[in-house]
Amino acid sequence: MHRHIISLPADPRAWAGESLASRILTFRRQAQLSQQALAAFLGVGQRTVSRWERGVDHPSPSLLQRLDALIGTQATPHLPHLPALYDAIRDAPVPLALVDGAGNVLVASRSHPARHETQARPADRLPQVLVVEDDHGVLQATKAILNRWEFRCFGITSGDGAVEAVRSGDVTPDAAIIDYLLPGSRDGVDTARALLALIPDLPILIVTGEAIVENIRKIADSGLSVITKPVDPKQFHLALKALLLMRGTP
């Protein structure tokens, strides 16, 4: 049996009927993020996000790609100018799916495998991710984005607190995302080592914008997976999924 796919562009500027400004605003409100939190996650200023949402400025090509990784799969299904097309695809007698330029399934017919693959899983079956980050805006944005990617999140602002939370059983993470610069007695690598002593096979991703040579060397020598700031959402998502797959977590 043949499967039919309709492809749509991933570039937000290619969508007629809804501006990039309104899509950013819609995403931020749906994720319950402040402008400052989204800006902190993307590595820009709050005023920059404000200018995007007011339509008086436009993201650079690199920022546009990072934004599309966030809003491309969330705002598109709610576009008001496509309801007839969506209904036609849902009722199609053959396996049919509508996907965006990044390969994300937006809607599928009842007989298409993607119809079942994209159904949301119960919350208690979602992988739990421990996020250790002392910047409140970045923590808020990271948790919101991970929740939208169907991860359960437990956020904490220090390495000492994270280790104690795992030791006490308050959280049993399937993976951990740890910022390198943390308050208290442990940096991100020290925190990771302490967590691995408690959960030896715990997948860990270190997030850093570190520029000090000694700290860079410590991160490199740790052998841990690393992603640099400002975080690229697509790389971030892929890295986390890869770590979970290595552990055997779906």
Rank of each mutant, 00 (worst) to 15 (best):
H4K: 13
H4Y: 15
H4S: 14
H4Q: 11
P9H: 00
A10F: 03
A10S: 13
D11E: 13
P12H: 02
A16Y: 01
A16T: 05
S19W: 12
S19I: 05
A21Y: 10
R23S: 09
I24L: 12
F27D: 03
A31Q: 12
A31R: 13
Q32A: 15
A37T: 09
G43Y: 04
V44G: 02
G45H: 00
Q46V: 09
W52L: 15
E53M: 10
R54L: 10
H58Y: 15
P59D: 09
P59H: 08
L67A: 03
I71P: 00
T73D: 11
P77L: 13
P77K: 09
H78E: 15
P80A: 07
P80K: 06
A84S: 00
Y86S: 15
D87L: 11
I89Y: 01
D91M: 10
P93N: 06
P93Q: 04
L98N: 02
V99I: 08
G103K: 11
G103M: 05
A108V: 02
S109E: 05
R110N: 09
H112Y: 07
A114R: 08
R115E: 00
R115M: 03
H116D: 14
T118D: 01
P122L: 11
R125S: 09
L126E: 10
Q128S: 09
Q128I: 11
V129C: 04
L130Q: 00
L130N: 04
V132R: 12
V132Q: 06
V132S: 12
E133W: 03
E133G: 03
D135E: 02
G137E: 03
G137M: 05
L139D: 02
T142Y: 05
T142W: 04
A144L: 02
I145K: 00
W149E: 08
R152K: 02
R152V: 10
F154L: 11
S158Y: 12
G159I: 05
G159F: 07
G159R: 07
D160C: 10
V163S: 12
A165E: 14
A165N: 03
V166Q: 05
R167L: 14
P173K: 11
A175D: 00
A175I: 02
I177L: 04
I178M: 08
L181E: 13
G184D: 06
S185H: 10
D187K: 09
V189I: 12
D190Q: 05
D190Y: 01
A197P: 01
L202C: 00
L202V: 02
I204V: 14
V207G: 04
E210F: 00
A211I: 07
I212F: 15
I212Q: 14
E214M: 07
N215G: 15
N215Y: 14
R217Y: 11
G223T: 14
S225W: 10
S225N: 14
P230Q: 01
F236Q: 00
L238H: 07
L240S: 04
L245E: 01
M246D: 04
T249W: 09
P250V: 01
